[in-house]
Design a protein around this nucleic acid. Sequence first.
DNA 1: CCTGGGTATAGAT
DNA 2: TATACCCAGG
Length: 530
Amino acid sequence: MGIKDLLRFMKPYVELIHIKKYAGKRVGIDAYSWLHKGAYSCSMELCLNLEGDKKLQYLNYFMHRINLLRHYKITPVVVFDGGNIPCKASTEHERHRRRKANRDLAMAKLNEGEASAATELFQRAVSITPSMAHQLVQILKTEKIEFVVAPYEADAQIAYLSSLEAEKGGIVAVISEDSDLLAYGCPTVVFKMDRYGNGEEIVLDKIFDSVARVPSFRHFDRELFIGMCVLAGCDFLSSVPGIGIAKAYSLVSKYQNLDRVLSILKFEKGNRMPEDYSKSFREAVAVFQHARVYDPDSKRLIHIKPLPQKLLQSLNEELDFLGPEMPPSIATAIADGNLDPTTMEAFDLFQNSGIHLNHSTSIQTSDPLLRQEDIAISTTQESSFTVICSNERIRVTEQKPILEERKYLNEAVALKKLLFPLKDKTAEENKTVPDKLPPKAPDNNPFRKRKFEEVQLDQKDSVTEQVSAVTVVEDSEILCTTPESQESVNSKFIKMNDGEKRGKNRKLRRSSCQSSENKKSSILNFFSRV
DNA sequence: CCTGGGTATAGAT
DNA sequence: TATACCCAGG
């Protein structure tokens, strides 16, 4: 994970610190690393989805650490991973494959009665499911801990937050295990924080400023540093055979220019170089520089750093390798933890409806669906239109003072891309993904689509009578979502066809089983599970 | 000297 | 799992 051997290479730049030095400050947390560590303690329970409290142990682990931070008067900001970007697909597939193999082995051992061997294997098979992440989100909400779900890479989101002022949601440092953060340009990262708050800190500026230390990066800039990272091998692109972190460093150091490094490399390696390495290299560098992130201030997707016109042209305006564009309403719903970023399904709150407490006073004072200004409707010339609504009325009206058809048409196109990214050739040609199926959510992604069995299990215990599920129907033009806040257990999506009046909204919402006259043009279809 | 593959071990309770 | 460390071959 991350940049191969980067942390070892950067050893001279680590300083042992205690997190109390960030007292009074906002600090970002890479949720994935703590979730994963926490899952060790209950890996078998999680893998087998056993009943009982044991499998919630990972939540204790996480909250323990959160409380450690709070004890030192630090304000934690938890950042979750979102969807996957195309160029990471092969890494994810490999992980998924390995975990599955381990799980199968574990099951075999278990059947043979070798419990200890089995638990060991289960530990290698744990993956963080969307359900787990979502459960944590519920707790964070009741504990009033700030969090955000990144549209794609959590690392990119963290890097972006690091660049913001505290007043705008910024953070001064981040706790993580992932060396990618340095490539993304995070100014301060604390690695390997233990349960007492001791950790290893790396400050990016010190890397570039240091005079005495070896390796020296005094003649490096951000781009060269990223180039070195990509050359050494990262999640988006594995390194050219024979090139490791040290070689990567000396190449970049010597030529001071990534294009020159590439051509030298091509010259020296000849046919040992992958055919499309240069292109992939450029894209990987561009991901670190210009990844798509959620901007909490404007509540929409932006680039970590805007793309220069020149780069845009050289990429033929094709940016989907960064992960497809998505409309603000979707990005917000994802960021707030209401929408699964890999499946685009609304999270159902079944599993949590019993324990979840309503702590927010400003919400649900009225039925938002009855208020005209909360509902954005845009008709296409055909027979469908878009509904966007939210029960956070003010936010929505501010965000979209004028509702234009065009805008929602664009949203529909964007959503379509999100849902069928592999129809895109850029994604297809990118690496050796064996099947051509729609984006398989990788195993280690916290929002990986939940297994069918899991869903059924959840339903069993539920108290609520009704929840809406969302499925995807092909060839769609309608987009609808209610980025509703956490408290509502009612429908999170609403779809309407032409001819249906706004007054019907409430009815729709309650009887979420809607027969779709117009399947051809509908993207989201709702039915109720009772 | 570097890379890359192999192996040991932490990390949870 | 993923990271650290060690050693062999280039």
